[in-house]
């Protein structure tokens, strides 16, 4: 696909749905992975029930659906390492950062040092982040 050249735009994917009750979460993840080929400046936000997408320990054998949560761990390989989780949404659901998968990316410039991808943000930080974007895609 497109390499070098072109204008880099800031894309934010806003995820607000839980993973298995509707198709939104999986669709969003696929669009993110496909979009990664275009080498744009991508961020992901998880708000409201969207935070459930990152819950640790998902086991879908019993419902006969594919467990796509391991795929979030591959985002670092796709150079997607800005993952913002809304603190309020997490707290309202009785969850903390420890309940979420430990998503990381490897910094090639620092001898592949593993760094966390997830940042907890408050409303003000999230609003500011949204305002910096060229394109906001909602799922």
């Amino acid at each position: 696909m497109e390499e070098g050249g072109g204008v880099t735009k800031k894309f934010l994917y806003v995820n607000r749905r839980a993973p298995y009750g509707s198709i939104y979460a999986l669709e969003s993840l696929e669009v993110v992975l496909i979009g990664a080929a275009f080498e744009q400046d991508v961020s992901l936000a998880f708000i409201d029930d969207g935070v459930y997408q990152l819950k640790k320990g998902q086991a879908t054998d019993g419902i006969g659906m594919k467990n796509f949560s391991p795929t979030y761990n591959a985002l670092g390989d796709y150079d997607i390492n800005k993952i913002y989780v809304d603190k309020d949404s997490l707290e309202q659901r009785g969850l903390t950062l420890d309940d979420l998968m430990n998503l990381t990316w490897e910094d090639e410039n620092e001898n592949y040092a593993e760094k966390p991808s997830i940042s907890l943000v408050n409303s003000e930080e999230l609003a500011a982040l949204m305002e910096q974007q060229d394109v906001v895609l909602s799922f």
Binding site: L33, A36, A37, P70, T71, A74, D77, Y78
Partner: peptide
Amino acid sequence: EEYQIAPAVRV
């Protein structure tokens, strides 16, 4: 097996 996807060629 680990990530449940086939990686893109760049990856």
